[in-house]
């Protein structure tokens, strides 16, 4: 069980993020949940690359064991892409707030239904 501790932490963060995304109606809160889900994926990639007794992958003559650099590279890319998508999501939330005057999912749906009913009648 202890050798899988990093995976269990990852899964806990993933479940927490997923729960916030599904259960909370507020769009900004949903985006925060999505970011937590994303950080759990960082952990999923980085943790297996660690070696006990290894150091950060910066080459030096007196060191011989390094942790795996490849996941670090992939996750560096993922962090930057993640913040770009977060910014895009927030811009969408701001636009929705302009159009509907609310960022609660329930209220947006209610307004949509009301608009549909008005068109139908």
């Amino acid at each position: 069980m202890l050798e899988h501790f990093s995976h269990i932490v990852t899964v806990f963060l993933l479940v927490a993020g997923l729960f916030i995304v599904i259960a909370r109606g507020n769009l900004i809160k949903k985006l925060v949940g999505l970011s937590i889900l994303q950080t759990s994926v960082y952990l999923l990639y980085i943790a297996p690359g660690k070696l006990l007794g290894g150091t950060a992958p910066i080459l030096a003559p007196q060191l011989s064991v390094y942790s795996n650099p490849l996941p670090h590279v992939l996750i560096l890319t993922a962090i930057v892409v993640g913040v770009a998508t977060l910014a895009l999501g927030l811009a969408l939330a701001v636009r929705i707030r302009e159009a509907y005057d609310t960022i609660e999912e329930d209220e947006i749906l209610a307004l949509d239904h009301a608009a549909d009913a008005r068109e139908g009648s």
Binding site: L51, T55, A56, S67, V80
Partner: peptide, 27 residues
Amino acid sequence: ALDAVDVAMTEAAVGAGVSTVLLLGAL
């Protein structure tokens, strides 16, 4: 702690810095 110093630096700058500023701006 997992030896990913470059990633940690990016996460502190981008995740804690830029994301927080963006979220506060949207808020």
